[in-house]
Design a protein around this nucleic acid. Structure first.
Length: 522
RNA sequence: GCGCCCGUAGCUCAGCUGGAUAGAGCGUUGGCCUCCGGAGCCAAAGGUCGGUGGUUCGAAUCCACUCGGGCGCGCCA
């Protein structure tokens, strides 16, 4: 299935004989004006040296004369050309739509999504849950849109932080106080009661939590492996050979300012030890060497100062490897703002379990996976977010996840009642003119491909939520206005049951991309 | 001091990369169950899109400055 807007725009251009590269289609403010509005007259005003309303009138006339089968009505309202699609054509499109994802093109670039990548030094918190939900949903969305995607978790199992955790746990095991700069949460005591390595235990716990949230990774990439395999040294060597480095005061530096960074960065300190950045360079070199062309990293907003240097490294490494590099594209860092937890408007900070922050596991246990994922994905990751646990757990329309799921449950309920489960595919034959509420759902549903294309291109899965909520509103209105099962009108019943089947499939598909369940009943 | 992010209805947020009278939910007020699920629907009220300039035929959207909130500026990770 193709997206609706590009098709209509291309048709208008062809039938009216103009060319534009920008998108000109939009939805009119009042549905009685039309299904779509073409604002090409604005763009054409300069080159034709005519007033937009005059151009719009002419183009509308041309379209009317051409009378394509997809167009039921066209009218110029001021500078806008308002288009109404024909019911028959809409039904044709809907009939052909299966909501199936797109197969990747054989020569398409491979994407590597890296997200969460928490230090294995403590339980995951609500912030990690946000990157987990968004990253996982983004991976599903891109895959659905026909991209080849790998999901990866970078394990910071080398360096100071994990050593610090081990020291803290060892102290407790020896009955000594935890060092001042060590880890002090209650979980440290729990780790101390077990004999295994605390880092391994912590990692396993994080994995378990993510698994419980439906978040899976293809690869858990160990930083320690980078060091042990000599990959870090290899990365530095590559930069040195490309003359991207210099020595200064006994340290080895990366000339990142040559690629837009604010200052040059140390790779090997004067005491001979490596910086964290050196390992990160090796990691990104490894990503490129594995053939990935699009690197997407989800980071907490507190890491934004780190973007420029890593991007500089990716630019230098790409150049060294003879690979293409596009700013903001080869490496795309998605920043996620931290989440503030509330309960009934009161800030929540303390936790009995960790003595520090409420863990992701605790939140999930309290409000459930569906609400957690949906509410976290729903907002643009780079906006500050107030998350109220009391509202999240509430099963009310205040909680959009239930509103959307309820729409699906209602559709399922109708099909149950009509017992059409056994019928494979009902014909979508139009028995009479469409009811406005019925038509509104159909029109919205057919914009699915446009929404998927836009969210994938912008890496913004929250648009799927917005779409599903808008679709749910229209669905509830339809449900209210139009009775589906009517013994006195068999043809219309069959038609509407077929519609309900189609829509149910769309809700299921949309919720699947979010990793949220689609309940048959609630 | 420098840099990044966010300011849209009382609250939580959308706003289709610059277009028509700025939208939704909650909350408030008032309606709708002889009917496939009322966890729903309809209506009313609620806004100088933080502010000031600028670009443009046209700005919530782009630019500059400014105010408020968050965060970052190590040979830390």
């Amino acid at each position: 299935m193709h997206a609706l807007k590009p098709f209509i725009e291309a048709q208008c251009q062809e039938l009216c004989g103009y060319t534009l590269t920008t998108a000109v289609l939009e939805v009119p403010p009042d549905p009685t004006l039309g299904d779509f509005a073409n604002k090409a007259a604005f763009a054409l005003a300069k080159q034709r040296r005519m007033a937009p309303p005059k151009i719009a009138a002419e183009l509308a006339e041309q379209l009317r004369a051409a009378a394509p089968e997809w167009l039921a009505d066209v009218s110029a309202t001021g500078p806008y050309i308002n288009l109404r699609l024909s019911d028959a054509w809409l039904m044709e499109q809907l009939q052909a739509e299966t909501w199936a994802g797109t197969e990747p093109a054989p020569d398409s670039v491979a994407w590597l999504l890296e997200y969460v990548s928490a230090n294995p030094t403590g339980p995951l918190h609500i912030g990690h849950a946000r990157w987990a939900a968004v990253g996982d949903s983004l991976a599903r969305l891109l895959t659905y849109a026909g991209e080849r995607v790998q999901r990866e978790f970078y394990v910071n199992d080398a360096g100071m932080q994990v050593a610090n955790l081990r020291r803290s746990v060892d102290a407790v095991r020896a009955g000594k106080p935890v060092p001042e700069d060590g880890y002090h949460g209650d979980y440290v005591k729990e780790l101390a009661q077990q004999t295994a390595d605390p880092v391994g235990l912590m990692l396993a716990e994080q994995r378990e939590t993510l698994h419980g949230a439906g978040v899976e990774f293809d690869v858990w990439f160990s930083e320690l492996d980078l060091h042990r395999s000599g990959a870090v040294e290899k990365g530095l060597e590559r930069l040195r050979q490309g003359a991207f480095t210099f020595e200064h005061e006994g340290a080895l530096w990366f000339r990142s300012t040559a690629y837009g960074d604010d200052k040059d960065r140390v790779l090997r300190k004067s005491d001979g030890s490596l910086t964290y950045f050196a390992a990160d360079i090796a990691y990104h070199l490894n990503k490129l060497e594995r053939g990935f062309g699009r690197l997407v990293n989800l980071w907490g907003a507190d890491h934004h100062g780190y973007i420029k240097r890593v991007d500089a490294a990716v630019a230098a490494l790409s150049q060294s490897l003879g690979r293409p590099y596009a700013p903001g594209e080869t490496l795309h860092v998605l920043l996620g703002q931290l989440v503030n937890l509330f309960r009934n408007g009161e800030p929540v900070r303390m936790s009995k379990r960790t003595g520090d922050m409420v863990s992701m596991q605790e939140v999930m246990d309290e409000i459930g996976v569906d609400a957690l994922r949906y509410l976290l994905i729903r907002k643009h990751p780079n906006t500050h977010m107030d998350f109220d646990l009391a509202k999240a757990v509430e099963q009310s329309p205040d909680n959009p996840v239930y509103y959307v799921q309820y729409a699906y449950a209602r559709l399922s309920s109708i099909l149950r009642k009509a017992s059409v489960g056994a019928i494979h595919e009902l014909p979508l034959q139009l028995p009479q003119p469409l009811h406005p509420s019925e038509r509104a759902v159909i029109l919205k549903a057919l914009q699915w491909r446009d929404v998927v294309a836009e969210s994938a291109a912008l890496l913004e899965p929250q648009r799927i939520c917005t779409f599903l909520e808008e679709l749910a509103v229209l669905l509830h209105v339809f449900y209210h206005d139009c009775r589906v099962i009517d013994e006195a009108d068999a043809p219309r019943t069959a038609f509407r049951l077929a519609l309900v089947q189609k829509w149910q499939g769309l809700f299921r598909t949309g919720l699947e991309l979010l990793g949220v369940s689609a309940p048959e009943q609630m």
